[in-house]
């Protein structure tokens, strides 16, 4: 009975959602969508490969934004993770909730929104992109790393404690060696994600290949868009391959 009530509520909610969508949609455009799609694809081919040489610099910027942003995220995310982990936090009442809030805030807000914000503050360019990527990475690195810290083998920590080691010594000698593989995996994985994200940050003005994409889309230069898509795809595949290789070596 309760299950049926749940279903009923779900269906009603979806119908209501549909109504809201309906109000905000111009259906003539939608009926036209297949034709538009065909038109779009028609215009995207053949690709204008001649723009490729002008893409190297933005691609280099994209990779740099991802790498430097990851570094920034790691440098800030690691201390945050130690503050957030129950077994290493200096205070459960103050530091832990603050660190967890920082992690949630960073995770809730997409790198694009951070970039939007930073472009307004710092002006357009690679720097805004790096900081946006870094801010978004703090939450990712922080969350996964603090979970790894909470899962360390307590017997090893106890053994170091029994030698008369101080708290910081315990951290560096018993906990850090245990989380190193997890840490390396997390960092490389995030770098891989960051390559994808930094490829689109240019859409809001934060540098990289996304700037070119934005320019071509607004000029309706679809043959160029095809080439840019291809460039992004190849970069993403390469970074995914690198990240998979590194993670395989570590484990």
């Amino acid at each position: 009975m309760a299950i049926w009530a749940c279903w009923l509520v779900t269906v009603l909610a979806l119908v209501q959602c549909w109504n809201i969508l309906n109000e905000n949609t111009i259906w003539d455009f939608v009926y036209d969508a297949p034709a538009q799609a065909g038109d779009l694809i028609g215009r995207m081919f053949p690709p204008r490969w001649s723009v490729l040489p002008s893409l190297w610099q933005p691609l280099w910027d994209t990779v740099n934004m991802a790498t430097l942003g990851t570094l920034l995220g790691v440098v800030i995310g690691v201390p945050v993770a130690f503050l957030a982990a129950r077994n290493t936090t200096p205070s459960v009442l103050l530091a832990r909730p603050l660190a967890l809030t920082a992690i949630v805030s960073s995770r809730s807000i997409n790198a694009l929104i951070w970039a939007l914000l930073l472009v307004t503050v710092l002006g357009p360019g690679v720097l805004a992109g790096i900081i946006a990527i870094g801010l978004r990475s703090i939450g990712f690195v922080g969350k996964l790393l603090y979970e790894a810290i909470e899962e360390v083998d307590t017997k090893q920590v106890e053994a170091i404690e029994a030698t008369g080691a101080s708290g910081p010594q315990r951290l560096i000698y018993a906990i850090v060696p245990q989380i190193m593989p997890a840490f390396a995996g997390i960092a490389v994985y995030r770098w891989d994600i960051n390559i994808r994200e930094s490829a689109v940050l240019g859409l809001v003005g934060a540098g990289g290949i996304g700037l070119q994409l934005n320019a071509s889309v607004s000029r309706l230069a679809w043959p160029e868009v095809t080439v840019i898509f291809a460039a992004i795809l190849v970069t993403v595949f390469l970074s995914e391959w690198v990240s998979a290789q590194v993670r395989k070596r570590i484990i």
């Binding site: 809201i20 969508l21 949609t25 455009f29 779009l40």
Partner: peptide, 8 residues
């Protein structure tokens, strides 16, 4: 581009 601006 296909559906026009909006939530759809």
């Amino acid at each position: 581009k296909m559906f026009g601006f909006g939530p759809l």
